[in-house]
């Protein structure tokens, strides 16, 4: 089967089951690295950085980037179209059938428990990104880089200072790039 077919199947599923927008696609994107060699777990961190620093919905940007990594420009286009196709279908059905979809008690109770589940899934995916982005060395073994861990903690602390909370992520990402170049990380 052609790679485009697999991209379609995988990203259609992500579009259908990633509930909660952009961040909800991260567990699925991490999961793909275990079944395909389209991109590595470490690439996911780069994809996130680019997606957060460019215009457009992060989830769409991530899909375009992931598809591009797998099969070039055509791959990016197919991944993106496959990601939004379920939305088109589902929203059109909901717009037709249910006037008060978000006030429906079944929908509300399902989402009451889906939301924390998605938080758990994203936490797990984020742990995986920490592992590959910080705690894995160039040879693929576990290491503990004190400087990177401290830098991460400092950035986390600074971005939670009340006055700086509203700053756009691109500011922090550029800051990270400057630190990386200055200290030859």
């Amino acid at each position: 089967m052609s790679i485009y077919f697999y991209l379609f199947i995988e990203f259609f599923q992500i579009g259908l089951f990633a509930i909660g927008g952009g961040p909800a696609t991260i567990p699925f994107l991490m999961n793909l690295t275990e079944r395909y060699d389209w991109y590595t777990k470490a690439d996911v961190a780069n994809m996130l950085a680019v997606s957060e620093s460019t215009p457009g919905p992060i989830g769409v940007n991530m899909a375009t980037y992931a598809g591009f990594q797998a099969a070039g420009v055509a791959g990016g286009i197919i991944a993106t179209f496959s990601l939004v196709l379920p939305s088109l279908i589902v929203i059109i059905i909901i717009a037709k059938l249910l006037e008060n979809f978000s006030k429906n008690p079944y929908v509300q109770s399902a989402f009451w428990s889906i939301r924390p589940a998605v938080t758990g899934l994203i936490a797990n995916a984020v742990l995986g990104i920490f592992e590959t982005a910080i705690f894995t060395n160039a040879e693929g073994h576990f290491h503990f880089p004190v400087f990177s861990v401290l830098l991460c903690a400092v950035f986390f602390g600074v971005m939670n200072i009340k006055k700086l909370k509203k700053l756009h992520p691109v500011v922090w990402i550029l800051g990270g790039a400057v630190f990386g170049i200055m200290f030859k990380m």
Binding site: A45, L48, A49, C152, F155, M159, A177, G180, M185
Partner: peptide
């Protein structure tokens, strides 16, 4: 080097 620094920041953003 830039990407190594960026990855650390992405982790902090994700934690947030």
């Amino acid at each position: 080097h830039a990407l190594a620094g960026i990855r650390v920041v992405v982790c902090a953003l994700l934690l947030n």
